[in-house]
Write a protein that binds this DNA or RNA. Sequence first.
RNA 1: GCCGGCGUAGCUCAGCGGCAGAGCGAGGCACUCGUAAUGCCUAGGUCGUGGGUUCAAAUCCCACCGCCGGCUCCA
Length: 637
Amino acid sequence: MVKVKVEGKELEVEKGTRLGEIFENLGIEKAIGGKAGQRIIDLLTPIEEDMEIVPIFKDDPESLEIMRHTLSHIMAHALKEIYGYDKVHLGIGPTTEEGFYYDVEVEGHTISSEDLPKIEEKMREIIKNNYPLFRKTIEREEAIKLFSQMKEKYKVDIIERIDLEETISLYGQDGFVDLCKGPHVPSTGMVGEFKLTHVAGAYWMGDSSKPMLQRIYGIAFWDKKELEERLRFYEEAKKRDHRRLGKELELFLIEDEIGAGLVIWLPKGAILRRLLEDYWKEEHIKRGYQLVYTPHVGNAKLWQISGHLEYYKPNMFSPMQIEEEEYFVKPMNCPFHVAIYKSKVRIYKELPLKLAELGTVYRYEMSGVLHGLMRVRGFTQDDAHIICMPEQVEEVIEETLAFAINMLKDFGFEDFKVYISTRPADAIGSTEQWELAEGSLKKAVEKLGLSYEIDEGGGAFYGPKIDIKIRDAIGRLWQCSTIQFDFNLPERFNMEYVGPDNRRHRPYMIHRAIFGSIERFIGVLLEHYAGLLPLWLSPVQVKIIPISPEKHGSYAKQIETKLKQEGIRVEIYLRDERLNARIRDAELQKIPYIVVLGDKEVESNSLSVRGKREGNMGSMSVEGFISMLLEKIKNKE
RNA sequence: GCCGGCGUAGCUCAGCGGCAGAGCGAGGCACUCGUAAUGCCUAGGUCGUGGGUUCAAAUCCCACCGCCGGCUCCA
């Protein structure tokens, strides 16, 4: 007998009684599963020991996970029914943040998106039939035999990896059996609303040397409304895709004739980029950084010493031969900044030394990973290297992190995730170095009150780091800011400073970037604002529309001059179109303010202002309009 | 790089063995307009590139380049 406690009630039942039965006895209806501590168990799970269980209902987020998991099984079941039980080989079928997927191999057929409706239909049939699910445990040897017979080679692979102590469970319904830990709903009719969305490739076990399976993705919610909302969100996200906005707003150009992953900044995009750069430079100068410039290529000897040729060569552009010497286009700025540090003897009073550069680097990225501005082959890092003494590390990290967060906030980002990556297995550097560095990272994050995740062992071999990722329009996280220790380069380049004791010491070196890359940051920015940039960053801030270019053109010109004198980026709409068409055009260009000028305005020496965010704002004086704009620009609105 | 899909006018796309198409945009003309599309006319394409099959290829096949969705990798 085991004792089970649920919602304050205690019940003694026979060992091995299923959770569903226990809930039934206690009169708990409509539970989808239960939580025992952190573990989610389903209604089919036998209870083998005393425990306290919190029931999971439909409004608990965990219930979605259970239902989605069953949907992935139903999809596998449908595939088996359609393509044959011995032709479909199943990989893994987990849940995702909004649905589920299953990795499969179908012998003699490639699933394409055209097959999805057919698969969905079969799934709905299975759901309608409301097959009860079964769960049973099985011995390891027996499991291997069973799945070998079923030609489920990937499942056999999984079983062989399962810990010897772990119990192996099977779930299934009707003629379908799957190796699975659960949890599931107890019958196929109990799942929610779903839709299969797309098919993509995925390596078995995420290993590029292993075969590639097809991953079929679906999304699922309890509520049809929620599902539809999600689908609408995807449509909406497509509209704010920075690649599309870049084209529509004439910001940048990426073309195969120029080269994959290489960005051309069009005039309007160049304004945006320049604003970012100017602001970045000002902020760095304020904080004691020294701005430098370094070359785009460097002698192979340099990259030899830095270790890049040893560790980073696959990511570098091929070398070029100049007068019997090899040169490489830089994939990083670090060695040059080190050279600046080493250009003279450094003393402790100079430290921390902060060198910063908007350094354009080129990296070979595999063609399949290129993605608009987010992943390119040539990009400009807002790079800086801080060289300091061990006793300064903590203060430096704290200051740097605060700087990064403040800057991100100035651009309107609040939704980011902070990760600290710690020492990996094959690390260089002493334990003291790692401990000091990791400790300073954690302290800084905590001091700023940021929540963070530890990526245990996720640091580079040369040092731990903090990464800040920003969420994009469709929920993808992009790494932007990074603060990384480097125990490698100071050794390799024999960096030193003269301490108060008049002896030579090895400094700590910290790499850091706030935007990460200007390209990526602008990509994230565009998606974040769906192209409607804050006023201070808008390439065109005001569009003046004279109702009749002939009658009101000269007044428009006067206004333009006044605004320009205040540094406001303004254009006059001269094309001869109907007023509504011109307003529409300016709206589509996402220009923050439209100024309409007609007889009324000329007579009263005023403006009629329409804000992209505010709508029609009515009549305003020129001075009032200007001071409103300047105020907003100053506040980075 | 790998798996799958896709490259047709500046943009979005239709056509899928038999004359190269639409809408938007662009240029011109008329309209002179009060807060999200005025009407008419015109120009614009080596159908990604190269090869093949065929009487005939945008269309079928192969290779390459690029893009898209993912995987792996990463700022």
